[in-house]
């Protein structure tokens, strides 16, 4: 008796019919949407390639990036040195390959530092009293209005004597690139707070901490991931700019911006020395941006559950 009744209802109501459909596999859908655009596929492939080169740089790079060959300086591209050598006889291709390590590490660490700071402040602002929130958001506006390059130059210069090498640049970038996250997280919190499940949680006596960790944060993760991906590219560009000015990562490190700076002196005779590392920067930044675009499409909650 019961069974026949159910079947009858399933035929009558659309809602039940939909429930009988096989469930949409979220992961498969994510993959399909993510790889829908060709540029995203290219960007993703390039990021994978760069990571691969960074991991296996010791094995695949033809020369030691720091080994000077003073009999063979400023060589034009040839069979032994595919991109030629620099003013100290170091193989350009090998240096660019090792440069992937610095670029990736700078990107990841900078984004982690700035995201942690930004998300924390953004959450506090979102849940604080309206006056506190206004103050925080106004200060954030102010921070965004200040040219970040100026603060980065100052900070990197200051930190250089405390933390050597890459550290000073990473911290300087991390400490200046967080305001964007505050805005994003604050906006997310304000929207998410309106949802019924937050109200339900509050009605059941949830503590603020539980609401933040259980309801707000998981729902704000998608835009956060997208923003972090985009900021990887931005921080690599900022690092390159600092290094190019001679105020970032110091020689002899094989950082792309630093290589551009050194190579720029010989632009008229060996243009590849500065153009090739710059091209590498652009490729990596482009790839991160494309992956970010793809993630944005794939993580968009409005598309979730759709068969596409």
């Amino acid at each position: 008796m019961e069974e026949t009744k159910n079947v009858g209802q399933a035929g009558e109501f659309e809602v039940l019919e939909e429930a009988l459909l096989p469930p949409v596999n979220e992961f498969k859908r994510f993959i399909r949407v993510f790889f829908r655009r060709k540029v995203v596929i290219i960007g993703f492939a390039l990021v994978v390639l760069v990571i691969f080169v960074a991991i296996f740089a010791d094995l695949i790079s033809p020369y030691d990036p720091y080994e000077q060959d003073l009999h063979n300086v400023m060589a034009a591209p040839n069979g032994a040195h595919l991109l030629g050598t620099d003013a100290l006889g170091r193989d350009l291709l090998s240096r660019i390959m090792y440069g992937t390590r610095i670029a990736l590490i700078v990107g990841v660490l900078t984004v982690l530092i700035s995201a942690v700071i930004g998300v924390a402040i953004g959450l506090v602002a979102g849940f604080a009293q309206s006056k506190v929130q206004t103050v925080i958001m106004r200060l954030t506006d102010a921070l965004i209005a200040i040219p970040s390059l100026i603060l980065q130059l100052l900070l990197a210069n200051l930190l250089k004597s405390f933390i050597g090498g890459m550290g000073s640049v990473v911290v300087a970038l991390g400490l200046t690139m967080f305001p964007g996250y505050i805005r994003m997280v604050n906006a997310q919190v304000l929207t998410l707070k309106q949802n019924d499940y937050v109200l339900a949680g509050r009605a059941m006596g949830d503590k603020k901490r539980r609401i933040v960790l259980r309801h707000i944060l998981p729902n704000a993760v998608s835009p956060l991931i997208v923003m972090m991906t985009m900021m990887m590219g931005a921080s690599i560009m900022a690092e390159a700019g600092l290094s190019f000015l001679g105020l970032g990562i110091a020689p002899p490190a094989a950082a792309w911006g630093q290589m551009c700076r050194e190579g720029y002196q010989y632009l008229m005779t060996r243009p590849l020395l500065s153009i090739a590392p710059g091209f590498a920067i652009m490729i990596l930044v482009f790839s991160y941006n494309m992956v970010g675009d793809g993630l944005r499409d794939a993580l968009d909650p409005r598309l979730r559950g759709s068969l596409d």
Partner: peptide, 8 residues
């Protein structure tokens, strides 16, 4: 324009 470093 968004991805290329200005100095490059």
């Amino acid at each position: 324009g968004v991805t290329a470093p200005t100095f490059w």
